[in-house]
């Protein structure tokens, strides 16, 4: 199934929010293709009758008591922010001309 094209890699990079360069597209296209070809072997044994395992330790509905606990204060929460402003996270615009 592999044979991943340069265009497909560009599409993946867009989905993953990675502004990759042209050189990276060439490099990654070849490498992703080689990796996918190697790992496609999982299809050889994954028959319909086998249930999937998503987690090694199957635990469901792990709850803790709903109690008030100390959390981060505003200053702590903003301490690592790239550009805090007036006690808030300043972020670039999320709406734009791009229809």
């Amino acid at each position: 199934m592999p044979n991943i094209s340069r265009d497909e890699v560009a599409h993946l990079a867009r989905l993953a929010r990675l502004a990759v360069t042209d050189e990276e597209l060439d490099l990654f296209a070849g490498q992703l293709d080689a990796i996918l070809e190697a790992v496609a072997a999982v299809g050889d044994v994954a028959t319909d009758d086998i249930p999937p395992t998503s987690h090694a330790v199957p635990l469901t509905n792990v709850f803790r008591a709903d109690e008030v606990r100390p959390g981060l204060g505003q200053q702590q929460a903003l301490a690592g922010a790239p550009f805090p402003e007036e006690g808030r996270f300043r972020v670039p615009r999320i709406l734009g001309e791009e229809a």
């Binding site: 199934m1 991943i4 497909e8 890699v9 993946l12 990079a13 989905l15 993953a16 990675l18 990759v20 990276e24 990654f28 490498q31 992703l32 990796i35 996918l36 790992v39 496609a40 999982v42 299809g43 044994v45 994954a46 028959t47 086998i50 249930p51 999937p52 395992t53 998503s54």
Partner: peptide
């Protein structure tokens, strides 16, 4: 970056069953 794109590919519709889904079955085995 390689792994993020590889994972994005394996989880994308159309490839999910063949890649991520099959890998989870191998995990069972």
């Amino acid at each position: 970056k390689r792994r993020i794109m590889l994972g994005t590919y394996a989880l994308s519709s159309g490839y999910y069953d063949a890649y991520y889904g099959s890998a989870q079955k191998v995990r069972t085995l």
